[in-house]
Each structure stands twice: as C-alpha cells, then as structure tokens.
Amino acid sequence: MTKSDLVEALHGRVGFSRKRSAEVVGLILELIKEALERGEKVKISGFGNFEVREKAARRGRNPQTGETITITERRVLTFKPSQVLKERLNHRR
C-alpha cells in the first residue's frame, strides 16, 4: 500500500475528488510530522502511538572496522501499536 492507495481510500469513502483527496492525505501526514517535529507524542486510539524519544550519547562500535566510536545524542521516532490492533492481528479468522 502506498500514498496513492490512501488517496483512493479517501476518494471512495469520504467522497473527495481525487485531487482534493491527495491534498488531504498530504495534509494529514504533514500535520503528524509537524507535531512529531515539535517533540509531541501523536496518539491515534485504536491504531497506535508515535513517540519521539531522546537517546543519550553512547559508545558504539563500527561493525565493519571494530573501531570504538561515540554515537552522539539524538532524537528517534518509535511507534507502539495499540493493544486493539495487536489483538486484531493475532486473533482473527
């Protein structure tokens, strides 16, 4: 599934024109990205939570050369699927 399938889904289910549907899909994604960029958690009930986590600097190793390097502090995005989604994925049929 790609963005164009999402555009089709909104076109079919909400009745937007394809052009409007493409704008709306782009906007939904952009609004989520902006919130995450601000460091906000994005919670979609029934689907899951996106959370920005602050990782401290740590010592790592270049797996190719074996050389010890410092991995700088960084912000990473994690997704935690909702309990409902996990259950639906495991208890169907």
Binding site: M1, T2, L6, I28, G46, F47
Partner: peptide, 22 residues
C-alpha cells in the same frame, strides 16, 4: 471522516499483512 478513513485504510492494510510504504 477523512482521518477515520485514513487510519481505517492503514489498519486494514496491516491486518491483510500488506506492507505500507509512505
């Protein structure tokens, strides 16, 4: 309606075990 349709479509793809690439 748009937000609900968006996440329903995503969820359906996950339940079909279809890979989603955005």
């Amino acid at each position: 309606a748009a937000v609900e349709a968006f996440f329903t479509a995503m969820e359906e793809a996950i339940l079909r075990e279809d890979r989603i690439e955005i």
